[in-house]
Design a protein around this nucleic acid. Sequence first.
DNA 1: ATTTTACCGAACACGGTGTTCGGAAAGTGA
DNA 2: TCACTTTCCGAACACCGTGTTCGGTAAAAT
Lengths: 182, 182
Amino acid sequence: MDRRQQKTRTAIYDALTKLLRKRRFEDITVQEIIDEANIGRSTFYSHFETKDQLLEQMCDEMFSHVFSESLMPEKSHDFSANHEELRSLLEHLLWHIKDHEDNISSIMYGESEKLFTRYFSEYLEDAFGNMISHIDIDVSVEFKKQFVIGSFINTVKWWIGNGLAQSPGEIIDAYYKCLIRR
Amino acid sequence: MDRRQQKTRTAIYDALTKLLRKRRFEDITVQEIIDEANIGRSTFYSHFETKDQLLEQMCDEMFSHVFSESLMPEKSHDFSANHEELRSLLEHLLWHIKDHEDNISSIMYGESEKLFTRYFSEYLEDAFGNMISHIDIDVSVEFKKQFVIGSFINTVKWWIGNGLAQSPGEIIDAYYKCLIRR
DNA sequence: ATTTTACCGAACACGGTGTTCGGAAAGTGA
DNA sequence: TCACTTTCCGAACACCGTGTTCGGTAAAAT
């Protein structure tokens, strides 16, 4: 693969990441990205069809790394027997997020937040999967799913919004305490 | 007050409401609103400085009605003694939302969802207020607040997203079951 | 050395936003 | 009814951001 392509690609990503630290994606102009990345206008458009596609691809790359396969449990695994395992999976995930703090914090404001929520939901639906059906409350499965996953994502967003002030362990702890109430 | 003003104002609101049923606010053009409302361009801009201001004012009016003062408990009221009271307050609130189903459902997609969340948070912070500090879990007050309010808003969003399929009572029921776990 | 590929950037077409202004029409008050 | 005030109308305009085009240059691949 041509080195030139890689260079401009990362230049664009870096430029956008930097700009996202100061304003929301919607308010950033293609011209600004171009200037910051120090590339030509047509070069930008030969890499990305639109500004939105750039964001989508950048998020794609990042989130697929954060939620990497290595973190996924076996589909068939049964967490009901062992809550500790799910717990450590989630904590692991938060550590990954912490690793990408810079990028993620930038992305979490404005329109791009929704991409995060989408990815996160999909991932967690697998992660929580059969654990949810084992929660013994007289409420529809759909509602339970919505509640458990929604409140987790919420918590993570809150955590990120607060600048990741707590450790992943503390967050999972608090989340579990609120959810399980032993 | 001049009848003409009222007429164009409601014409604009109605037009936007109608258009919002089909696409997101970001994708709606001022020209479309004007055509739908059947008014002149400069008339639109004599009522609203920008397209965004229109949305904001419309939401302002609507949400302040949904979360109307009549629903607010006394600031000093202590819900800890009587969960039933908070419960009926929340159910009451959901009925109000159901009354405005048309408008709210439209607004809940796209950028405008955030306005809803903002209003809702502010309102609930008052409503839940001192109830939260009485939840006996070893977790910071900030976290509890985030968890309780966040999961409630989440639930309501989910409910709206599903076309308000359940009754307000059912929703509050399920929410309480998940939150309290007696 | 030749060919392929990527980059450059000025110029352009297009579409949406918000402004201006003179004239028409509707409301107000005597 | 007549003057007057307010609102509405809409065409024309300036402005800005998006995405395209194309001839030329530089870098990489063979």
